[in-house]
Every structure is written in structure tokens, then in C-alpha cells.
Design a protein around this nucleic acid. Structure first.
Length: 274
DNA sequence: ACCACTACCTGAAGGC
DNA sequence: TGCCTTCAGGTAGTGG
């Protein structure tokens, strides 16, 4: 499910339910996701109040009063499910449960278990946050900053923008979409994206992510916002998942092609992207 | 140092 | 109906 726009949507949804609330009940229903869940995770959080939530790249952060902050990652298949108050209807793969003082129940559900949940260090650091590049929607991300990161990189530009140390939060869908909007071939060597090209790409990355957030993210299989609403940005895809379909650029008669780069599908138009 | 590939895990979809 | 293969929104670790 989750690239930056989906995580942003989930964090906003969770904020509405959790901010300012005491965690009346916390429960871990297995010991390990991608990494082990910390010992006494539930015990440490039980009875503590949530200050607020934030997002860094594809990570959600739950800031606590008088307890360590929580970091979570949704992996490929993670969701946060908001369950009605009363007797919650748990499903398979509901691994971690939070209940607020008002009786709202949140379940972290992740069939593939590529996600994880952990505590931040006291200074707000975490090993997973160390190598992250700039937030694409912040002022630190722009053409020159991107060009600098791409300098000397021999890998294809598609692989480079999936590299979280170049720009953080962009995943396979939005990498494809941003390259299409920028008119750049996914196979182009990253180091050739300088000057105007870098400017253009930085802009399309920001635009695509911003539009996706406004649409509540993208729903492929079962991604849902916290309240169960679906995202709908998938209707705006220009290339992702559209192999063999017509390019949507005015005056282009080519079909969208699919190729595999470092083990992942790339969708692009070979006429519009150079 | 850089880059591509594998491994991690489950489930859905398609072919036979 | 069922078995087998392929594919999926991510990323740490490995080996060239």
C-alpha cells in the first residue's frame, strides 16, 4: 500500500482518533513483524497519553507523553484499521491493537509483515531514519538539491528516485508517475538529470505527491484510509499499471510499456519520455 | 563505493 | 475445484 501519500493519509486519520487521548489498552498479538516488537511494548504504553502524530518519509510517528515515541512502517501490505467501539471484530493479521479512553480501537493489520513498529530513541532518532534524504514536500527539496544527489550516479533515474537517501517517501507508483510527468525516460542515467531536468523532476515529484495526498492516496488492492474510505488517486494514474493502454498525452499515439528495473515494474511512454 | 539481486511473507489472479 | 506460477505499494543485507 504505502508510499508517502498513503502514510500521510493514515497519519491524518489516526491523528483524529488518537491525539490527546489516553491509551486505555494496548495489545501485541505476535512478537515479530519485520523486526521484533519491543519487549513490554504494550505495558510501556498502557495508560499513557498521545501528544500528536507526524510523518517522516514513509514512517508514521506517534509522539507520547511520559513514554517513548512510537515509529511504524506499513511495509507493502500494512493498514491501520479503525474499529467501532464496543466488541471489536478482529481479523486475521491484526497484530497490534490500541484502544483509547473513548473506546475507539485501532488495529495495525499487515498480512505480509514487511512493516514494523518500534520505539524511537529518547532524542527522537531511530536507525531507520538515519539515511533518509530530504522530505520531497519540504523547502529542502528542489532542483539543485536533487541534481546534487544525482551527481555521479550511474544507476537509472528510476532506481535513483526510489533510493530513500536521494529523496524520501517516493515509491514505485509515484516514481513512475513523476518521471512521466517530467518527460524523462526511466532508463536515463541518473547523473544526466541536472539543471532544468532536475528542476522539472523535483517539481513533478512534489506535484504528484501533493495531488495524491489530496485524493486520499491510491487504492490498489485493499488499501483503505483509517476510517475505511478508499483512496482514489489510482484513477489519476497516467502510466502505473497501464501497460498496453494508450498514452494519455495529447497527440501521442503510443502505448504505455512495462519494463523491469532492479526487480520492479516500471511503466512509461517511450515517445513522451526521453 | 556503487549497484543489482535476493530474501522476507501472504494472498490474489490467471493458466491449465 | 484445485494446483502451480506470477505478481504486488518496501527495504536490509549480500555479493559482484
Amino acid at each position: 500500500m504505502p508510499e508517502l501519500p498513503e502514510v500521510e493519509t493514515v497519519v491524518r486519520g489516526l491523528s483524529r482518533v488518537l491525539e490527546g487521548e489516553v491509551l486505555r489498552h494496548v495489545e501485541t498479538r505476535r512478537d515479530t513483524l519485520r523486526f521484533p516488537i519491543p519487549q513490554k511494548f504494550a505495558e510501556i504504553l498502557k495508560g499513557k497519553r498521545v501528544k500528536d502524530l507526524s510523518r517522516r518519509a514513509k514512517y508514521g510517528l506517534i509522539h507520547m507523553e511520559d513514554a517513548p515515541d512510537v515509529i511504524f512502517h506499513l511495509g507493502m501490505s500494512g493498514r491501520m484499521r479503525l474499529l467501532g467501539a464496543g466488541a471489536p471484530d478482529f481479523e486475521k493479521h491484526d497484530h497490534v491493537i490500541f484502544e483509547t479512553g473513548k473506546g475507539e480501537v485501532i488495529a495495525f493489520n499487515d498480512p505480509r509483515r514487511f512493516g514494523f513498529i518500534d520505539f524511537l530513541n529518547e532524542d527522537g532518532s531511530h536507525p531507520m531514519l538515519e539515511k533518509l534524504g530530504p522530505e520531497p514536500l519540504s523547502n529542502h527539496f528542489n532542483g539543485p538539491a536533487l541534481a546534487e544527489k544525482l551527481k555521479g550516479k550511474k544507476s537509472p533515474i528510476k532506481a535513483a528516485i526510489l533510493d530513500q537517501s536521494v529523496v524520501s517517501g517516493v515509491g514505485n507508483i509515484y516514481a513512475c508517475e513523476a518521471l512521466y510527468e517530467a518527460g524523462l525516460s526511466p532508463r536515463r542515467s541518473a547523473h544526466t538529470v541536472q539543471g532544468q531536468r532536475a528542476e522539472r523532476l523535483a517539481n513533478t515529484i512534489r506535484e504528484v505527491l501533493t495531488r495524491a495526498i489530496a485524493a486520499g492516496g491510491s487504492t490498489l488492492k485493499d488499501y483503505a484510509q483509517v476510517d475505511g474510505e478508499l483512496g482514489y488517486f489510482q484513477h489519476d494514474f497516467r502510466v502505473y499499471g497501464r501497460e498496453g493502454e494508450a498514452c494519455r498525452n495529447e497527440g501521442c499515439d503510443a502505448d504505455i510499456q512495462r519494463l523491469v528495473q532492479s526487480g520492479r515494474s516500471t511503466f512509461y511512454c517511450s515517445k513522451c519520455q526521453r
